[in-house]
């Protein structure tokens, strides 16, 4: 029977209350959200916090809101306690960032998705975490609160390494911000051994088209193949070019060379490189199709 080691439990009523509880109980206290990463780790004694601060009552962190940010830029804000199921079922998320919907369909299984949260997934920072790649591809900004106030971090600043983030023990990840861009499409695809498993490999891409149909901006991210951050070389090869199959094949090749997978029970290195190549091509194709659709609908609205 797997049972966590003893700990004390407190349920936070507000973000301020949670921050106060974290301060009071010190570095051996941990935030508990969906619990589907932390509790299994506690059962295995890979984590052994003395205090759990349950934030499941913090409805103020459960939201999806579109609006202008402080600089007036069109932004989608997603609260850290938003459940995977909510993200998957959101028409607004699907319309603006279909890469999130693509990923949510293949994160764990429907029942786990009822509990798991976007904030929990990012803070767990598993190297095979799908939403980490998605947030990197979309250039998300993490909003972190501590007793001293709020700070905004890019994903490069947020992720420190496997299972390690910039969120200090007395801070809370409160929301993720995504810049909405016109003529942009995005996609995610994952190969897994069975439903609910971690990725053997996965790829995500975002493509923005210029008015003349060339690629104005592109980002490519890979999951579970030892890639830190986005694949700059593969994305750079696309810039200023017309999107063609030959271009996607070249980007796939560059992605498979750039990544650094390890052999494990999910597959050997050459297979994972093959997946990085093939999945990069597929997500670029689909992201470009969606960017075309987005450009068409924008043109229709303007016309």
């Amino acid at each position: 029977m797997q049972i966590p080691a003893p700990f004390d439990y407190a349920r936070a009523s507000t973000v301020d209350n949670a921050l106060a509880l974290l301060e009071r109980h010190g570095p051996e206290s941990r935030i508990l959200a969906g619990g589907h990463s932390l509790l299994p780790m506690m059962k295995l004694r890979l984590a052994r916090p003395e205090w759990l601060i349950d934030i499941n009552d913090l409805f103020e962190l459960d939201f999806i809101v579109r609006g202008a940010d402080a600089q007036g830029a069109d932004t989608l804000r997603i609260g850290a306690l938003t459940r995977h199921t909510t993200l998957l079922e959101s028409d607004q998320v699907h319309a603006l960032f279909p890469i999130i919907t693509d990923a949510e369909k293949v994160i764990a299984d429907p029942i786990v998705r009822n509990r798991g949260t976007i904030g929990g997934s990012l803070c767990q920072a598993d190297p095979a975490e799908d939403l980490s790649t998605v947030c990197e591809v979309l250039g998300a900004v993490a909003v972190i609160r501590g007793s001293g106030g709020e700070r905004l971090l890019s994903m490069a600043e947020f992720h420190r390494g496997p299972y390690e983030t910039a969120v200090a023990h007395n801070e809370i990840l409160c929301e993720l911000r995504f810049a909405v861009r016109a003529r942009t499409g995005s996609a995610y695809e994952k190969v897994e051994r069975r439903v609910g498993d971690w990725a053997v490999a996965a790829a995500g891409a975002s493509v923005t088209l210029a008015a003349d149909g060339t690629i104005e901006a592109a980002t490519i991210g890979l999951t579970a193949v030892g890639q830190t951050g986005t694949v700059g070389a593969a994305a750079d090869a696309l810039l200023g070019q017309l999107p063609t199959e030959a271009l996607f094949i070249e980007a796939g090749r560059l992605a498979s060379v750039a990544c650094d997978p390890i052999a494990d029970q999910r597959g050997p290195v050459d297979y994972k490189r093959h997946l990085a190549d093939e999945l990069t091509r597929r997500v670029l194709r689909r992201a470009t199709e969606r960017a075309h659709a987005s450009a068409t609908s924008t043109a229709t609205q303007e016309g």
Binding site: L32, G35, P40, N114, R115
Partner: peptide, 13 residues
Amino acid sequence: GQPVKSCTVLAAM
């Protein structure tokens, strides 16, 4: 009303 896996939910939650 929502299905959850009760081996990964604390009774406290």
